[in-house]
């Protein structure tokens, strides 16, 4: 009997129903662990997560979490998140009300024969070339998660691509109001 495949968890690609939580937190040691620990403990799925110092006040950081709203009701996730003492405010953005952007970096080994093909592909996708040497090019795309997905798929035809994505950040679209949670 062959041993079963190791269980790697439920692989999450872009979830069918996702929500973006923009979470203002105190900029203190261990806060990210508290958030990640709560998601793990409660069985809520995180699709992507980005952290940066908050715009106005050095005491705070902003964590943008894309959650899989299939794994648990959104109000459960928000309610449990809100109980973390270091969480100051939660803004819930539904995808249709959100301006979402993500950064993709990919180093693609190229030969003379494929270099032109890659340059065309990058130009078509709106990506820029940010590094070059004799054996490879590094392309960068700042765009919607969908545009990043499309570029990632087109790069699959190149061998040994090293690709990183940041996870998305988001703001409410102008003229739309996000749900502000205390």
């Amino acid at each position: 009997m062959t041993p079963p495949e190791p269980f790697l968890g439920d692989t999450v690609h872009t979830p069918v129903r996702h929500h973006i939580l923009s979470v203002l937190v105190e900029n203190k040691a261990g806060v990210l662990a508290r958030i990640a620990g709560m998601f793990a403990r409660r069985g809520f799925n995180i699709y992507s997560l980005a952290v940066a110092p908050a715009e106005s006040d050095a005491r705070f950081s902003r964590v943008t979490i894309v959650v899989d709203a299939e794994s648990a009701p959104l109000e459960q996730i928000v309610g449990q998140l809100d109980k973390l003492v270091n969480v100051v405010a939660i803004t819930d953005l539904s995808p249709q009300d959100a301006l979402e952007r993500e950064l993709l970096l990919a180093t693609v080994p190229t030969e003379d024969a494929t270099r032109g093909q890659l340059l065309d592909l990058a130009a078509g996708a709106g990506a820029s070339i940010v590094d070059v040497d004799g054996t490879a090019l590094t392309v960068m795309l700042a765009g919607t998660p969908g545009a990043c997905d499309a570029l990632e798929r087109s790069l699959e035809s190149f061998p040994e691509v090293e690709l990183h994505r940041t996870g998305r950040v988001a703001l409410p679209r102008l003229g739309r109001t996000a749900t502000h949670e205390e």
Partner: peptide
């Protein structure tokens, strides 16, 4: 008092 209990 804990709203995370609602609907849990």
């Amino acid at each position: 008092i804990d709203r995370a209990e609602f609907g849990k």
